Simulated assay, not measured.
Amino acid sequence: MNSIKLTVKRLYKLSGERMVNAQATAHVYVGEKRVVTEEITGMTESPVSKFLHHTEAQGQPVRVEWECDGIADMAVVEVQVCPCCQHNELE
């Protein structure tokens, strides 16, 4: 099983002059195949990461696309060793 680190760099919407919780849907792709869809709710201006797993071939390009009712910025990167489950891709 391969792992991807999804990082939500910021997520919020504006209500007047205040930042409030927002909702986003992240679609994570390996190559051209969508491997996971994540629903994200909350508010952050500091990066928050989550590790996702998939069974597609390792070494393909990874990307994230999202829909959001506010302001969002996200990134993905393939990881070799998942820190949450210690699964090592090289073994």
Rank of each mutant, 00 (worst) to 15 (best):
T44H: 09
I40G: 02
V64Y: 06
V48K: 15
V30G: 05
E78Y: 02
A57G: 02
C68N: 02
I40D: 01
R34F: 01
H53D: 00
E45A: 15
D73T: 02
P61M: 08
W66V: 10
D69V: 05
V48Y: 06
E78N: 07
E39Q: 11
V77E: 15
M43S: 11
H27V: 12
M43L: 14
S46M: 13
V79G: 06
A75K: 14
E38Q: 12
G70W: 04
M74Y: 05
V79F: 08
E56L: 12
G31M: 04
E56Y: 12
V64E: 01
E39M: 03
T55V: 02
W66F: 14
W66G: 05
E78F: 02
T37H: 01
H27R: 13
C68A: 04
F51A: 00
P61N: 11
V79D: 07
A72Q: 04
K33S: 11
P47N: 07
E65G: 09
G59L: 02
H54R: 00
Y29C: 00
C68G: 03
Q58F: 14
C82S: 11
E45Y: 12
V48H: 06
V62Y: 08
E78T: 11
A26M: 10
K33A: 13
V36Y: 04
C68T: 15
V76Y: 10
A75Q: 15
Q80C: 03
D69H: 06
D73N: 13
T41S: 11
K50D: 05
Q60P: 01
D73A: 12
Q80H: 11
V79A: 01
P47D: 07
E45I: 15
E65D: 13
A72K: 02
V62G: 05
R34E: 15
V76G: 05
V35L: 04
D69N: 14
V64N: 03
L52G: 04
D69A: 01
A72L: 07
T55N: 10
C68Q: 05
P47F: 08
V48S: 03
V62A: 08
